[in-house]
Simulated assay, not measured.
Amino acid sequence: MTGPRPRRRALIAVALASVTMLGAAGMLWWVSTEGDRRLDRQVTEALDRYELAYRHNGVRATPTPPPWNPYDPPSGAPSVEKASVHRDDTTLTVDFIGGPVGEGPCGMTYGARAVESEHSVLVVVEGHANQAGAACTSEGYPRRATVRLARPLDGRAVLEAMQGMPVPVTPTE
């Protein structure tokens, strides 16, 4: 009965290799998305704080920023400083401080996404380095990103992602 044993060992080896690869893939998923989950939690909490402030103060709502915790600072997404709404009332252009424009190793490209609630729109700006791990200066450069809303802004507040605070909104000309 020596025939089936080598085949059985091979099947066991393949099964163990598969489990090991799945475990490694799971760890990679955990490492690569922990920051995303943290940012999503931060966004949800900011929208909740604004909605609570809106219930108490209406359009003059100013939410309380989260308490500062040096061991768990807010996510590193660039903070929107101001926004302009286009004539269609569904396109926002946001201004923020970010990395340099360009093709070099220190250049950054940015995208923005809007997370909308009944009374506010929180804009998350996400940066992508041209070359991860490049030794670059930490200078800030004025940058812009544009995002389309699912429905018109219609007077809703625009919030930045770091602390969930409202930013000035002006119409574009």
Rank of each mutant, 00 (worst) to 15 (best):
T2I: 13
G3Q: 13
P6G: 00
R7K: 06
A10F: 11
L11V: 14
L11N: 12
A15V: 11
A17Y: 01
A17L: 13
S18I: 03
S18M: 13
S18N: 09
L22M: 09
G23S: 14
M27S: 11
L28N: 06
V31N: 04
V31C: 02
S32G: 08
T33M: 11
G35Y: 09
G35V: 05
D36Q: 14
D40H: 11
D40W: 08
R41M: 02
V43E: 01
E45D: 12
E45V: 00
L47I: 08
D48P: 02
Y50L: 00
H56R: 13
H56T: 06
N57M: 09
G58V: 03
G58I: 07
R60V: 03
R60Y: 10
T62I: 15
T62A: 11
P63T: 01
P63A: 14
P63N: 07
T64M: 14
P65H: 10
P66E: 15
N69T: 07
P73C: 12
P74E: 03
P74Q: 05
S75K: 11
G76K: 06
A77Q: 08
P78G: 04
V80I: 07
K82M: 09
V85H: 03
H86T: 08
H86N: 01
D88S: 06
D88N: 15
D89L: 01
D89H: 09
L92I: 10
V94Y: 05
D95Q: 15
I97K: 13
G99M: 07
P100H: 12
G102M: 04
G102P: 00
E103G: 11
E103T: 13
C106A: 04
G107Q: 00
T109K: 14
T109P: 04
G111D: 15
A112L: 00
A112R: 03
R113L: 11
E116Q: 15
E116D: 07
S117R: 10
E118L: 12
E118T: 13
S120W: 01
L122C: 01
L122M: 03
E126M: 01
G127K: 02
A129P: 11
N130T: 12
Q131E: 14
A132S: 14
G133F: 02
C136K: 01
E139K: 00
G140L: 06
P142L: 02
T146V: 12
V147I: 05
L149P: 02
A150I: 04
P152F: 06
P152R: 07
G155I: 07
R156P: 05
L159C: 08
E160I: 09
E160A: 00
E160V: 05
E160G: 02
A161H: 02
A161I: 00
Q163W: 10
G164F: 09
G164Q: 10
P166D: 08
V167G: 07
V167N: 01
P168H: 08
P168R: 05
P168Q: 05
V169Y: 00
V169T: 04
P171Q: 03
P171D: 04
T172L: 09
E173N: 12
